[in-house]
């Protein structure tokens, strides 16, 4: 494993930790999109079907289980926890799942590395992950007061994507057979979605003012 990949996994993990911290200790999910969290739960469930088939390493298995468990427990907290669910900004989180899920499923049926159930599910998870942040970004734009933890959560998620691209560039030069167009193209699209957010996040940090996205 190269350093970019490890750093990418760690920022991804950190984003989940930040979100769990907010939910678990502050008992608030204000500014967090349930739609995005549900989409991530679907992404991990579809991608990690290989847990039953492949064993890569202990690290790999543990990380996959952590992402599965954390994504489902976040959804549970936002929907069922009696205190947390009251902080959910339902009125502004209006993005519809099927707008993202159906095109991704269709695309996965058309463009995949092999037409098997697992490969189609893998491609579907890659496409869906690329756009799953969309409801969250829309919600941020509608939120007047974006708290620090929410800003950091999205920042770490974006950082994870940037680091994964550096990881692919590294792997491309060190492992000649490592070419996965599907994940590369989807990954670049996914990273570009954060570009706007990054700009405002860094600006707010530089000028020491509260993060706010223009409508």
């Amino acid at each position: 494993m190269n350093v970019f990949r490890l750093a990418g996994d760690m920022t991804h993990l950190l984003s989940v930790v930040v979100l769990l911290l907010k939910i678990h200790t502050i008992k608030s999910c204000a500014g967090i999109s349930l739609k995005t969290q549900e989409l991530y739960a679907v992404v991990f469930a579809a991608r990690y079907l290989d847990l039953f088939v492949h064993f890569v390493s202990l690290y790999n298995t543990v990380m996959k289980l952590v992402f599965l468990a954390s994504s489902f427990s976040i959804v549970w907290y936002m929907k069922r926890h009696k205190i947390v669910r009251r902080t959910y900004d339902k009125d502004h989180d209006t993005f519809r799942h099927y707008v993202l899920v159906l095109p991704c499923l269709l695309l996965a049926l058309l463009i995949n590395e092999k037409f098997t159930f697992r490969e189609v599910m893998w491609a579907f998870s890659i496409y869906l992950e690329a756009v799953a942040i969309f409801p969250q970004l829309v919600l941020l734009q509608r939120t007047r007061n974006i708290d620090n933890l929410t800003g950091q959560y999205v920042f770490f998620l974006g950082a994870y994507r940037v680091l994964y691209i550096l990881n692919w560039i590294y792997r491309y030069f060190t492992e000649p057979h490592f070419v996965h167009w599907i994940s590369w193209v989807a990954g670049i699209v996914q990273t570009l979605l954060y570009a706007d957010f990054f700009y405002y996040y860094i600006m707010s940090w530089k000028n020491n003012v509260k993060l706010e996205l223009p409508a």
Binding site: V56, M63, K64, F67, E175, H177
Partner: peptide, 10 residues
């Protein structure tokens, strides 16, 4: 192989 490399990512 390439297949394994793909599943090694998260």
């Amino acid at each position: 192989d390439s297949e394994d490399a793909k599943h090694d990512e998260l």
